[in-house]
């Protein structure tokens, strides 16, 4: 049974869907992956005039609007820490930061037309979060769905967390590491579909994780298999 496998669809997740998830989103998209991204926090939080006064935006606020606000603050710090550049980059990728589609919560995301290649807001097989609490939130949401939607547990998702510090440079490095993980998964998926004698994809995941972790020892990984 030799056939081209359906390509894996990816989702990158961080707290605010601004820095780490968007960097990974960009890198994966540039490399031909079908990808979308979310933030798991309650709102988008960016550095503000002082440490105790962050800039807080609701999810769905267009990046252009965020850019205007940041620009209007005319802070040196925004340029130094790369927030302005980051927002400019995000504007090239999608319109606005989106919130993870938590079960039974009002959606804070873009219309589905903004995401070609995806049938719905959870239509992906791989989720890569960039922080442990985001991983916990995503996996907990999937378990909640198993509980509250007992008849809809047929879609499998491979969840990973790659712990990345929330700064510009770490996000850049983390994005490359996530790209490598995505490439390894893609390769295993292709081999499993094209060659009946090769290992099924799920069986290869533990080895992929170990190999990847040895290469990126400073980015501790987490993994779980979820259904929705």
């Amino acid at each position: 049974m030799t056939e081209s496998p359906a390509p894996l669809k990816f989702c990158t997740v961080c707290a605010s869907n601004n820095n780490r998830s968007m960097e990974a989103h960009k890198v994966l998209q540039e490399n031909g992956f079908i990808v979308r991204s979310y933030g798991t926090g309650s709102a988008v939080r960016l550095p503000g005039p002082t440490i105790d006064k962050p800039n807080v935006f609701p999810f769905g606020t267009p990046y252009t609007k965020i850019f205007e606000v940041l620009n209007s603050q005319d802070l040196k710090m925004h340029k130094v820490n790369g927030v302005i550049e980051m927002t400019k980059r995000n504007m090239q990728i999608k319109k606005a930061p989106e919130r993870w589609p938590y079960l039974n919560q009002p959606p804070q995301r873009l219309d589905e037309e903004e995401h070609p290649g995806f049938d719905n807001d959870l239509d992906f097989q791989v989720v890569i979060t960039c922080e442990e609490r985001c991983f916990d939130a995503v996996v907990e949401d999937y378990f909640s769905r198993n509980y509250f939607e007992p008849n809809d547990t047929d879609h499998l998702v491979y969840c990973f967390n790659v712990d990345i510090r929330d700064d510009h440079e770490s996000a850049r490095m983390g994005g490359l590491a996530i790209l490598e993980l995505a490439n390894m998964l893609k390769k295993a998926n292709t081999e499993a579909a094209e060659d009946e004698d090769s290992m099924p994809l799920q069986d290869t995941i533990p080895d992929i994780i170990v190999e990847w972790q040895r290469k990126y020892p400073t980015l501790p990984i987490l993994h779980a298999l979820c259904y929705h």
Partner: peptide, 13 residues
Amino acid sequence: TAAFSAMLSVLMT
């Protein structure tokens, strides 16, 4: 973990 996750998922349901 793969088998463990699936078993927990079934038990949650």
